[in-house]
Amino acid sequence: MATTSPSLSPRPRPVPSARWRRFTKGGGAELLILLVGIIVLWSTISSLIPNPSRYLPAPLTVIFSSSDMLWKGLLPNYVGQTIWRLVLGSILGLLVGIPFGILLGLNRTVSDMFYPILNFFQSISGIAILPIIVVWWGNSEQTVFTVILYTALFPIAFNVLAGVRGIPIIYINVMRSLGASNMRIIRDVIIPGAMPNIATGARLGIGFAWRAVIAGEMLVGKRGLGWMIFTAQDTDHTDQVILGMVMIGTIWILIDRFALRPIEADTIQRWGLVQR
């Protein structure tokens, strides 16, 4: 005996689009409210404290100064310089670190030998090295660059070495029994097998390098974002300091979320799953 349920559906309401719902469900609405709240709180504190232009300029002031600096072309210049140093240092770090890591990782004995010392140098941050480099090469572009290269290099080399070391020896043995040459083994087994670690090392190295650029610019005095916020503090332009900080955070998020992480995830997905 089939029972029919009486039609109880209420009057059809317009259904909000799926995107909007994901936004609000995912805390989007609360985030907007929170951001507005932060800006309001910020403005309130600014207006209440003595000497706001020194201690906490109002949000509007920061926005005005940013458009001012954009207009004068200074901001793009500084951003460009900083990013240029980062990119150059990172690329060189990859070009040197990856082959270095692979070579060291190939032989068990050699990799066991170099593992601790690479770990050691990885943990002495580039900034700690900086004073030594400054004594050697003074306050020059070269100094900043060396520090960035150092900072990027070791995490990359270390992670690549660890990755190569972790490749099951059986794959290499199989290739040998197929008569493969060393180059072939490196190309077909080692590099794909170590890919996830290469990606992780790259992400770590570039992350450390980013911090090193900012600090290096502050200490050595070469123009760029780090330099900008440091001198702004010195010349009482706190609005530029805040502007610079926001830029630094935003740029890093852009680099990390839209370049580094997708590459890492993609590499791990493609090679990691296949490998393990």
Binding site: S5, L8, S9, A18, K25
Partner: peptide, 12 residues
Amino acid sequence: DEYTGEDVHALD
């Protein structure tokens, strides 16, 4: 409903 937003009449 979580995804469509429509009203689900669970118990009557």
